[in-house]
Structures are given as C-alpha cells and as structure tokens.
Write a protein that binds this DNA or RNA. Structure first.
Lengths: 132, 132
DNA sequence: TGGTGTACTTACAAAAATGTAGGTACTTAC
DNA sequence: GTAAGTACCTACATTTTTGTAAGTACACCA
C-alpha cells in the first residue's frame, strides 16, 4: 500500500513544492491562483494597476465580497500589492508585485490559449441533430 | 461605461473567447482546467498515459468519485483521451490529446513555477501601511 | 473461502465557495 | 435633499464542490 502521507507532510519542510503531495502548501497557492476569480484578477492586473471598483467593472460577474476576498488572498500570497490613500472618498490601488508579475504571466498564457482555441474546444458535435 | 453584458453574451457567438465576459464559454473550460483536481490530472497526464488506479495513487488525496468526474469533464472538453479495453479486469488508459498537450504545457508551467518559488511565497511581511 | 484488484456508479453528507443584502462614513453632483 | 460613488465588512442563504461509503461484476491468489 502506498502511503499518502510522506515525511515532508509531517515535518512541514518544503524546500521545493510538490503539488501531487497531499499536504504541500503549494496546493493552497495553486488554489488561490486558479480560483474562479483569482485567475481573472491576475489577468486583469497583468494589464496594469486598478482600483477596486474598476476591477469589479472589468471582471464581469464578481461580487464585491468575492473580489475583496480574492484580493486579500492574493495579497497574502505576495502576488498583489495594495496601496490605500487615506482620503475621504477611499482610494485604493491594486497592482502586481514582481512575484505577481511572474505568476500572472503563466495564468495569462493559459487564459489566452483558451481564448484563442475556444473554437477547437468542447464537444465537437453538440448535435443530437434530428437531421433527416 | 463598460456593459457587463455584451451582444456576444446574448447571441452566443464566440469566435475568440473572453474570460472577462460573464457568459463566455471559455470560463467553463478555464474552470475545468483550474479545478482542484483538473490541474493535477493534467500535470500527471503530461508525464504520459496512466490508468485510472494509477492516477489515483499518484495524485495524493483524490477520491475515486472526483477523479472519475474530473476525467469525464476533461474528456468532454477534448483534453483527455479515454481508451478502454473490454477485458475481464477492466483496463482503461487515459492520455492527453494533442489539444490536451498544448493546454497541459501551460498548467505545468504554472505549477512548476509555484513549486520552485514556494520559499518566496506566503506572507513575509506582517502588515503594510496606509499611505498619505 | 476469503481477500484483493479493476474501473467505475450511485446515494447521501459535509465542507467550501460563492451570492445577496445591508451597513459604514463620508463627498460630490444634481 | 436625494442619489450616486468610494472601498470595504458582516450576517445569512444558496450553490457548488468535494468526500464517504457502498455496490457492481468478474478474476486471480492462497
């Protein structure tokens, strides 16, 4: 029987991550980056800094709650930089950190690939067509 | 300024996808590829064909149910090829389609980046300050 | 005879993700 | 004065995802 828990899982010492290992922290990071909104936030911030409401308008369908939560995760992971100017109508700017730029490159590549290859994707024949 | 619902949303004609648009089918594909197990299946299959139980052992933590479901989605999207030999102890082999190979390249790049950069990730800074 | 292995499926349950609505504390525009 | 805009947070509800356990049908091993 193969153990699903390795020594690393128990010790918690991860010099290099391994997403195939159950307890590896890399899985958490991966989750944040590949979450429904995480990906879209990264893609959007890859085009430049944005304010909160700006992001919300750009990313069709996000709720304020989800956007805020997603941004906090990405900030905690070190991908996003939050800069708040304490003025009367609040002004908060979000941008990618150097680390974020690196990570975003990959998710942008993935989403771009999907976008351009959309026509080739999915069930090639969606038709139970009653042609005849 | 920007409408959240475009003509494309309504018509359903997507020549090129746009993940930032609410109704775009690319979002679904993205979801499958970036789902918790979808990513790991792609990463694993990128190293070569695997049988069902083999995948299950390699990807620490997947349940049979989730693995089966994930594989079905990826198959429907055209990323995974399922080949079943109808022998007495069932023998089913999963591999990447040419399309799958292309897509997998991106998710492998992302996961690899995360794995090697793990030490730089997470919250190194206690608290950022507000600017004036 | 009993246990293991194969590749699943189904029903049910729990956990996680996401959405909705409201509030905050102020300002500018109409 | 009324509405809208700013950047959130909190409680609550719903939806989606994920997990658990069992069942299937047969064969090989001891």
């Amino acid at each position: 029987m193969t153990l699903s828990t390795t020594a690393q899982d128990l010790i918690g010492a991860w010099e290099r991550g391994n997403v195939l290992a159950a307890g590896c922290p890399s899985r958490g990071i991966l989750q944040h980056l590949t979450s429904k909104w995480g990906t879209l936030v990264m893609v959007t911030l890859a085009t430049g800094p944005h304010r909160f409401a700006e992001l919300r308008r750009r990313i069709a369908g996000v709720s304020e709650r989800m956007l805020a939560q997603t941004l906090q995760q990405l900030e905690a992971d070190g991908f996003v930089l939050r800069v708040a100017r304490d003025v009367v109508p609040p002004h908060v700017s979000y941008s990618l950190t150097p680390l974020g730029v690196e990570a975003a490159a990959h998710v942008v590549a993935l989403t771009a690939w999907i976008e351009t290859n959309l026509p080739r994707l999915g069930p090639p024949l969606p038709r139970p067509q009653a042609e005849r």
